[in-house]
Design a protein around this nucleic acid. Structure first.
Length: 425
RNA sequence: GGAGGGAUGGCCGAGCGGCCUAAGGCGCCUGUCUUGAAAACAGGUGUAGGGCAACCUACCGUGGGUUCGAAUCCCACUCCCUCCGCCA
């Protein structure tokens, strides 16, 4: 959510931000009009409430029955006016909140201006040991099926399209990746969390998923349970409504969770393989920090995500998202893309963002400055470290050998129970 | 799922429909005193919104209702505790 004070004081900043995001800036004028309405109504209703409070107090003290009756009659009328105005305030508030709730964060000045993902500049390319294979690379959907570690038919049998089963060494390889990533991030200073995979509606609002991305979420129709689309959601909710001590910051968390997405927006895209499913696993990093520290934390988090690619010796590149491709809550985002020689494409395995105070305002998360001053909104950041299916694709396709076997990356071997090479089962 | 008890400021804990503008205590901050500290004493200590300000409004688990007026009365819900049943 954007600070209403920014609309009042500098609406052009928001108009420009919306234009750069390829969105209509007309919403700014609607917000300003609603805000003016709201303040006008509040002024009137609060004056009436003050009057009623005073007179009601007099009624309590008065001994004169006739005078009491006169005042009670008068206040009954005032009460009706208050009810009517309160209802108007409620409606204006509701409309205003609805408008504000779907306005995205302001991109930072250093974010490149661009229309869509085709205009995202590549910041750097980091070549790992595995880049070019000197034989024709198989895509993972062939390689994995032949190895007997990946089964699409069973996924469809159980749950339908966009589901699959990992079997034997495949399942174990994913578990090894998860365990290794968690241990790596623990060494980098993040505290591991085990979280609910279903959360309440208000948590999704706080994280910026609702109301805008309702169509992408799975939820229980009988209870207020929503499956998390990313660990970012419960990691935001952890401190919803809290006032943290400045000394506790930065607070760095990480968590492994499954993620559930309906993928209504991408129907028909990436239907082959395990790149995009309704359920996938992810290790996520999340930081709460002081506003003045958030850009440093962004750089740290990006480096910490890159360390995963480096540990696996994968070739990857860092891409800066342009204004037209920036996510809803992000003020700046870097994507990590690893090279997958089998499907012959760069795969987005991580997205690292500084969300500034966009989520903390929605979720009411503050910190108390060490000097004891007023509580201030803090900044939050999130970054994948990494998304599992695409990391699995990259490992399988990069570590494949001409005979169709797959070498297990050395860093993962402690969890593989002696399997150094995955061969057909 | 059934029966009962509870939810009040940072914490503990009072609170007959109207001096609740929430008692009292603890904690914290400031001041006096002191070489310094402790103690004692005095004052101050929530969040949000509106107003240039004085000030005003809202908030006693949540949401409704009754009333001129609700922490207080009524209804629904949520969460916590105790017991019973069921259960990985």
């Amino acid at each position: 959510m954007i600070d209403i004070n920014l609309f009042r004081q500098n609406p052009d900043v928001i108009r420009t931000a919306l234009k750069n995001r390829q969105m209509d800036p007309a919403v700014v004028d609607r917000v300003l009009a609603l805000d003016a309405d709201r303040r006008d109504l509040l002024g009137r209703v609060e004056t009436l409430k003050a009057e009623r409070n005073n007179v009601s107090r007099e009624i309590g003290k008065s001994k004169d029955a006739a005078e009491r009756q006169t005042k009670i009659e008068a206040m009954r009328k005032v009460g009706d006016e208050i009810s009517a105005l309160d209802e108007q305030v409620r409606q204006v508030d509701e409309t205003l909140e609805a408008e504000l709730a779907v306005i995205p964060n302001i991109p930072q000045e250093i974010v490149p201006i661009g229309k869509d993902e085709h205009e995202n500049p590549v910041v750097r390319v980091m070549e790992g040991k595995y880049k070019n294979l000197d034989f024709p690379a198989q895509p993972h959907w062939d390689l994995g099926v032949k190895l007997g570690i990946l089964n699409f038919e069973q996924g469809v049998k159980l749950s339908g399209t966009r589901f699959y089963v990992l079997s034997g060494a495949g399942a174990r390889l994913q578990r090894a990746l998860i365990a290794w990533m968690l241990d790596l991030h623990a060494r980098q200073g993040y505290r591991e969390q085990y979280l609910p995979f279903m959360v309440k509606q208000e948590v999704l609002f706080g994280a910026g998923q609702l109301p805008k991305f309702r169509d992408n979420l799975y939820h229980d129709v009988e209870e207020d349970y929503w499956n998390v689309p990313t660990a970012e959601v419960p990691l935001t909710g952890l401190h919803m409504g809290d006032i943290l001590e400045e000394a506790a910051l930065p607070l760095r968390y990480m968590a492994y969770t499954p993620c559930f997405r309906r993928e209504k927006m991408s129907a028909g895209r990436d239907v082959r393989g395990i790149k995009r499913g309704h359920q996938f696993d992810k290790v996520e990093m999340y930081t709460y920090c002081r506003p003045e520290d958030s850009m440093n934390e962004l750089n740290k988090m990006l480096a910490d995500a890159e360390a995963v690619c480096q540990g696996l010796d994968l070739t990857y590149r860092v891409v800066a998202l342009c204004t037209g491709d920036l996510g809803f809550g992000a003020s700046i985002t870097y994507d990590l893309e690893v090279w997958a020689p089998g499907c012959d494409e760069w795969l987005e395995v991580s997205s690292v963002s500084n969300v500034t105070d966009f989520q903390s305002r929605r979720a009411n998360i503050k910190y108390r400055p060490a000097d004891g001053g007023k509580a201030r909104l803090l900044h939050t950041l999130n970054g994948s470290g990494l998304a599992l299916p695409r990391t699995m694709i990259a490992v399988l396709e990069n570590y494949q050998q001409p005979d169709g076997s797959v070498v297990v990356p050395p860093v993962l071997r402690p969890w593989m129970g002696g399997i150094d090479v995955i061969r057909p089962e």
